[in-house]
Amino acid sequence: MAAKVLLIEDEPNIIEAIGFVLKRDGLNVRTHSNGVDAIEAVRRESPDLIILDVMLPGRSGYEILEELRDDAQIGDTPVLMLTARGQARDREMAERAGASRYMTKPFANAAVLEAVRELLGQ
C-alpha cells in the first residue's frame, strides 16, 4: 500500500505542484490548508509523514508541531518542516519543536522528494 503524506500548506499552487510531484512518485497525498484544525486533520488522516509549513493562517507550524509531539497517538509521525526563512533561529526553533527535517523555501522538487523518501525509510 502506498505511503500516505499529509501536506499542510496554505499556498494553493504549492499544494498543487508538490502534490503532483509526490503523487507521481506513487504516494498517497492528502492536503490541508490552515493551522487552526491541523491537528484534527492529522488525527483523521493518520499519515506516515507530514509536510508542515511554518506560516499558516490561524496557527504557527511550530505550535502545531509541539502539540503533535506531545500526543501519544500521532506524536511519532515524521515531520518535514517548510519555512520561508533560513536563519539559524528558525532552524533552531524547528529542531526544538521536534521537526524531523527542515527545508527552506524556495526548494527544488527533487530535494523535497528525496527528503520525503528518506523520512519514509524508502
Binding site: N13, R85, K105, P106
Partner: peptide
C-alpha cells in the same frame, strides 16, 4: 515586512516547483 517576504518566497516556491514539473515531465 516578514509577511511580505514570506509571501514573495512562497510564490517563488510555487513557481519554481511548477516550472520544474513542466520541464521535467
Amino acid at each position: 515586512l516578514a509577511g511580505r517576504l514570506h509571501e514573495v518566497l512562497s510564490v517563488v516556491t510555487a513557481i519554481r516547483s511548477t516550472a520544474s514539473i513542466l520541464v521535467e515531465t
